[in-house]
Design a protein around this nucleic acid. Structure first.
Length: 203
DNA sequence: GCTTAGGGCAGTAAGGGGTG
DNA sequence: CACCCCTTACTGCCCTAAGC
């Protein structure tokens, strides 16, 4: 049972329940026990954790590792299907790698995005920015946070670890070709009045 | 009012007991 | 002696209590 009236069991509680040290619990729960802990002992630890309802304390883990396994996703808008899709995909991939995504809307994708935390570099492990200008993220990421740019001008993000873009120009060419093939000859391009690399490519 | 000590929690390097 | 399995001791940062 959880010790000393606490509402939440700790790894020490699990260790006591399983009859092992706290370090062994850490190895088993972290999936790093193979070769260091016997299978029966690992199973005993897992069973004790299950009985107590133990879940690792993320604050303590972050304290020890100095990492938060949290990535900030910065998007210009929360009300379009495109960015909903970006978030869904990012969250799915992040979860598969043990990361979580914090969504942060920065309505002006060009101007500087404000830091939503007291210090983003202390609260985050990285920044994903969709359809933003890299310079808009200076305040957010400082000179430490890794940055991946989505849907952004490839050569205007010198600090980015990677840039992921759709082949917008070819997509528009194909769409135009399709319409031409259907016999259409006059087109209207209705575009947003926002200075954006994506819109320029599309135009 | 300021400083110091200690608690909280999980991760990990280093080390030790037991066995073949 | 080598290896397996596990423990010990320490670390990180922040907050609070205790002491001066």
């Amino acid at each position: 049972m959880p010790s000393s009236g606490k509402t939440r069991p700790t790894s020490r509680d699990v260790a006591r329940e399983a009859g092992v040290s706290q370090a062994s619990v850490s190895l088993v729960m972290g999936g790093k026990w193979q070769g260091r802990i016997s299978a029966p002992t690992a199973e005993r630890v897992r069973e004790a954790a299950r009985i107590l309802g133990y879940r690792p304390n993320l604050a303590a883990r972050n304290l020890r590792t100095g990492r938060t396994r949290t990535v900030l996703l910065v998007v210009p808008s929360l009300t379009t299907h495109f960015f909903a899709g970006v978030h869904t995909g990012a969250a799915r991939v992040a979860a598969a790698h043990g990361f979580s995504i914090v969504l942060y809307p920065s309505p002006d994708g060009v101007g500087p995005a404000r830091d939503p935390f007291a210090s983003a570099p202390a609260a985050l492990d990285g920044v994903l920015a969709s359809s933003m200008a890299a310079r808009a993220l200076t305040v957010l990421r400082g000179d430490r946070l890794p940055l991946v740019m989505l849907d952004s001008e490839p050569h205007a993000s010198p600090g980015a670890a990677a840039t992921v873009n759709l082949d917008i120009a070819d997509g528009v060419r194909q769409a135009a070709g399709h319409l031409l093939g259907l016999g259409h000859r006059r087109f209207l391009h209705l575009r947003a009045d926002v200075p954006s690399w994506t819109f320029e490519q599309r135009a």
